[in-house]
């Protein structure tokens, strides 16, 4: 698993797409593919890119899901996934409780994913810095 993080609008997806052969990957935007989608992707001999991973985390929190466990299960099924996520914690702590929870939990999930990742890249101005 590879993790790519950075601020909003920093060219993270473009950075990833430049590094890979795009014929070999399917991009999912703000969602995690379900088992059927995953099998279809694998049947086409493709690997998975999750773009805007933070949007999926936010959706699962608002649906009372368990994104912490669900993403770890997904990684077992798709160990070569590339996850792209905004860094959400670099601001004033929001007054709104849900926004606060979303930022905090997204941050903690990214820390856990970074521990498990083979490679972590931080992108700024479209340029990637490999930090792990």
């Amino acid at each position: 698993m590879k993790l790519v993080v950075g601020g909003y609008s920093q060219g993270k997806l473009n950075y990833v797409l430049q590094k890979i052969n795009t014929d070999n990957y399917s991009v999912f935007d703000g969602i995690i593919p379900d088992d059927a989608q995953l099998q279809e992707t694998f049947a086409q001999k493709k690997k998975v890119i999750i773009h805007r991973f933070h949007n999926w985390v936010k959706a699962r929190i608002s649906q009372d899901g368990n994104p912490e466990e669900e993403i770890l299960l997904f990684i077992q099924k798709s160990p070569e996934v590339i996850l792209i996520s905004d860094e959400t914690g670099n601001g004033i702590v929001p007054v709104d409780a849900f926004e606060r929870e979303y930022r905090e939990r997204t941050g903690r999930i990214l820390v856990e994913l970074a521990k498990r990742a083979d490679e972590v890249v931080r992108v700024i101005c479209g340029i990637g810095q490999k930090i792990k």
Binding site: E87, G89, R103, E104, R105, G107
Partner: peptide, 8 residues
Amino acid sequence: IGGSGSGK
């Protein structure tokens, strides 16, 4: 230095 939930 780090953001919230950054593991700082």
